[in-house]
């Protein structure tokens, strides 16, 4: 904002009519969102209450549903922990280190966002599946396969969240610490990590949300074995295929609740980190 703009701006600027009428564009946005997002989600919520609380509870507490939900949460937690560590490490390598080919490496990070999820699953099957070319024991139809697929699709989140923060990090703090005799490990633990924490958390929250709902990448590699590799999204899909809408809806509502709370947490982290200034 330049000071010139402030002087010239008329005090009535708020009342100025906007493009094509504020009401029109606002109405368009609200209608579009309602038809596409609100109504379907409302339908889901209403359907889940149709059988009453008991019906919902029976569907959710079905052993297969419970297994699927627990498996989803555990696998997603494992994925988030690995992502937090590897993502921070990779962000550090991409920002602070310098070597030939770094640019290419940096652009490869977005590959999982560009690649269709079904291809992501297939890609991992090609290398690590039962007829894997590495000669190691195949990971298809195991929980390791599910986690690997989730790691693939969630790779960019933490890296892309941490990178800009790391770039803006003031080097003088680290230099001051070093000149006062702090060892590199101490600097990482006491200065770098605390500064990166909000970014790591934000990236992890997005990765968790993605992992909890992922379907395409795990569809082929998991083998969809109940109690072993059948994550919640696969469970819902199987229920829809067999026409059990109550079961599908109940677990969907649980997933929806998890998604919404993660989203809420993500906004909280963002607000907190902007308030505390970088």
């Amino acid at each position: 904002m330049s000071s010139v703009g402030h002087i010239e701006a008329p005090p009535k600027r708020v009342h100025m009519p906007r493009f094509g009428g504020a009401a029109l564009s606002r109405g368009f946005v609200i209608t579009y969102l309602s038809v596409l997002v609100l109504i379907p989600i409302a339908a889901l919520a209403v359907r889940s209450t149709e059988d009453g609380w008991d019906g919902f509870w029976t569907a959710v507490s079905h052993p297969m549903a419970v297994d699927a939900i627990i498996l989803t949460i555990l696998a997603s937690l494992a994925v988030v922990v690995i992502n937090a560590v590897m993502g921070t490490l990779l962000a550090w390598v991409l920002v602070r280190d310098d070597f030939p080919g770094k640019g290419i490496l940096n652009s490869l990070i977005d590959l999982p966002f560009a690649l269709p999820t079904i291809v992501a699953g297939l890609v991992l099957m090609a290398l690590y599946g039962e007829t894997g070319v590495l000669g190691i024991e195949g990971i298809s139809f195991t929980i390791a396969g599910v986690i690997l697929a989730l790691l693939f699709v969630t790779l960019p989140f933490v890296i892309r969240a941490v990178q800009p923060t790391l770039m803006e990090l003031d080097l003088e703090m680290e230099e001051a610490a070093a000149s006062l005799g702090a060892r590199p490990f101490t600097i990482v633990r006491r200065i770098i990590l605390p500064n990166l924490a909000p970014a790591i958390l934000a990236g992890s929250a997005l990765a968790f949300a993605r992992a909890v709902g992922e379907f395409g990448a795990v569809a082929l590699i998991s083998g969809n074995i109940p109690g072993k590799t059948q994550v919640a999204a696969l469970f819902i899909y199987s229920r829809i295929e067999s026409g059990d809408m109550s079961g599908a809806t109940a677990v969907s509502v649980v997933l929806l609740a998890i998604s919404v709370s993660i989203l809420f947490g993500f906004h909280m982290i963002n607000r907190w980190s902007t308030r505390h200034g970088r």
């Binding site: 997002v37 989600i41 709902g213 999204a233 989203l263």
Partner: peptide, 9 residues
Amino acid sequence: LPFAISPVV
């Protein structure tokens, strides 16, 4: 929301 909701849902 569409980012956070599972595609199957």
